[in-house]
């Protein structure tokens, strides 16, 4: 499943999106707010679900070549983080759902797709 398909199926709000990255396949996901933990668990092509909005989120996501960041409970990136995400061509979305709910939906979507 590609990122833009996942985003439309989950009704995600676009915070920033890029033509080059939004058609990449989503290979998995990780949910977490401790960046020290996320750095060891996020992988290339993963979507990352978090409530953190600091610019280090963008740094960690691009470092690990994650396919997108999904912010929960309608969180918005801080201004400096947004500018960084745009410059780095990182796709960032938000959802009104909690981390638990959106992670469950992502899991189901990816699971049914792989089967």
């Amino acid at each position: 499943m590609n990122l833009n398909e996942l985003a439309s199926q989950l009704d995600l709000t676009v915070i920033c999106e890029h033509e080059t990255t939004m058609h990449k396949p989503v290979l998995g996901g990780y949910t977490g707010d401790l960046l020290s933990d996320v750095m060891g668990s996020l992988d290339e092509g993963f979507v990352w679900v978090t409530i953190q909005t600091h610019k280090n989120v963008v740094a960690v996501a691009t470092l690990k070549e994650a396919s997108a960041v999904i912010l929960v409970k309608d969180s918005k990136l801080e201004q400096e983080a947004l500018e960084m995400a745009q410059a780095e061509e990182l796709c960032v979305y938000s959802t009104p759902l909690s981390a638990f709910e959106i992670s469950g939906r992502i899991y189901n979507l990816l699971h049914s797709w792989f089967c």
Binding site: D33, L34, L35, S36, V38, M39, Q52, H54, K55, N56, A59, V60
Partner: peptide
């Protein structure tokens, strides 16, 4: 420290 620190919460110094 592994809790309540810049390194645990943000991974590294911004």
């Amino acid at each position: 420290r592994p809790s309540y620190s810049i390194s645990s919460q943000l991974g590294f110094m911004p």
